[in-house]
């Protein structure tokens, strides 16, 4: 099971996924900042819901990419 998981992770396109995580993270941060700067209903609700969803997704992609990078360096 562990070996299969490591093999699966080794195929993970680390660099590309990290770049996607960065873009998602930037989008989430932009939504949060918009909510704070505008302070009207839709941006505020967006900052407290959609932005956090994108942020969690970016963080998960980052975690998986680092795990994949570590797995690919194993002898």
């Amino acid at each position: 099971m562990m070996t299969r998981l490591l093999r699966l992770l080794a195929r993970w396109p680390t660099e590309r996924m990290l770049r996607i995580a960065c873009v998602l993270g930037l989008f989430a941060l932009a939504l949060m900042v918009t909510g704070v700067l505008l302070g009207t209903p839709l941006p505020v609700v967006g900052a407290m819901s959609v932005a956090q969803g994108f942020g969690v997704l970016a963080c998960l992609l980052f975690g998986l990419s680092i795990a994949a990078d570590v797995a690919s360096r194993r002898p």
Binding site: L29, A51, Q52, G55, F62
Partner: peptide, 14 residues
């Protein structure tokens, strides 16, 4: 950049 600061930003923006 992807976990620590965004987490603080998310808590603060909430």
């Amino acid at each position: 950049g992807l976990a620590v600061f965004p987490f603080v930003a998310a808590v603060a923006s909430t």
